[in-house]
Amino acid sequence: MKYKFSLPLLAIFTIAACAPSGTISAETNSASCDTQKKLEQSEAGLSQEIICIKNSKGKMHIFTTEMAKTSAEQAKGLMFRTELPADRAMLFPFNKPRMASFWMKNTVIPLDIIFVKSDGIIQNIAENTVPYDETPVLASAPVTAVLEIQGGLSAKLGIKAGDKIHASSFTPTAAPAK
């Protein structure tokens, strides 16, 4: 059986076929950033939470985030994984602020490593870190968490130092008085 398409209808199908099948991350307002939503464990057995980043233009980006809470989970991180979807992340929360240092040993994919201060503000970002590189990637000041997302995604989404992280288990505290 042959199908006959009109030119406008064919154009619509062509555009739909070329459009990305999913969004990089949902953009929404802060009222609909549900960091309290309960999620099941990840395939790696880690607890998961919703984390949102509000960029300087007011756009909210939502990530389903694996929580690397224990020292063993933090030591393994995203090592040996061959992909990290654009709407996924991993958070490394710390008990108290510290000078964080990460490396890419045994990490197959490039990552953006986002260093987060105690008030939830992004301190600095190491963009597109190089797979397998053992050179330390450092926070520029003490931080209470590190968030890893797909390499190059922070630039694509306009996420920069000074933007705010919203999460339920990583509850930002007021910055210490000087």
Rank of each mutant, 00 (worst) to 15 (best):
P110W: 03
E43M: 02
A31K: 02
A11W: 04
H166K: 10
A72W: 00
K178Q: 09
F92H: 10
I113Y: 05
I159P: 10
L9R: 03
A175F: 07
N55G: 06
K57D: 12
V108P: 02
M79P: 11
A11L: 08
H61W: 05
A100M: 07
I62A: 06
A11Y: 00
G152A: 07
R81G: 15
K76F: 15
A167T: 08
P93R: 07
K4S: 01
T82C: 12
L78E: 13
E134I: 14
E148I: 11
K156P: 06
N128V: 01
L153E: 10
T173Y: 05
A31G: 09
E134W: 03
K160C: 11
M67I: 15
T35M: 11
K59L: 08
K178G: 11
K54S: 14
V143M: 12
L84D: 12
A100N: 03
F115E: 04
L153R: 07
P136G: 14
A44H: 06
S25Y: 01
Y3G: 06
F5Q: 02
G77Q: 14
P93D: 10
F170S: 11
M79G: 14
Q36F: 08
S32V: 11
E83Y: 14
F5R: 09
N124F: 00
T129Q: 00
A75S: 15
L157D: 06
V146Q: 08
E66R: 05
L39P: 12
P131Y: 06
A19F: 07
L84W: 13
L10Q: 05
T129E: 01
V130P: 02
S42R: 02
P20A: 04
F63A: 07
N106R: 02
C33K: 12
A26P: 01
T135K: 10
P93I: 13
P93L: 05
S21T: 12
N128E: 05
G22D: 01
T65P: 06
P8L: 00
Y3A: 10
P110F: 00
K59R: 05
M60C: 00
G151C: 13
E127R: 00
M60Y: 04
L138Q: 09
S71K: 14
K69G: 08
L7D: 09
A89R: 00
I24T: 09
I50Y: 07
I113C: 07
T144L: 14
I24H: 03
N128Q: 08
S42I: 11
P110G: 01
F102E: 04
L138A: 08
A167M: 08
E127D: 00
K76S: 14
W103R: 05
E43V: 10
K105I: 05
A175S: 13
G58Y: 03
A145V: 11
A86L: 13
P142H: 09
M90V: 14
Q150L: 13
D34G: 07
V108L: 05
K59S: 09
V108D: 12
P172V: 13
N95H: 09
V137R: 04
G152I: 09
H166P: 01
I159V: 14
S30C: 07
A68M: 13
G58F: 05
L78N: 08
N29W: 01
G151E: 11
A68S: 11
A100F: 03
I165T: 12
V130L: 03
T35C: 11
Q150D: 13
I62V: 11
I62S: 02
V108Y: 03
G22R: 01
P85Q: 10
C18I: 06
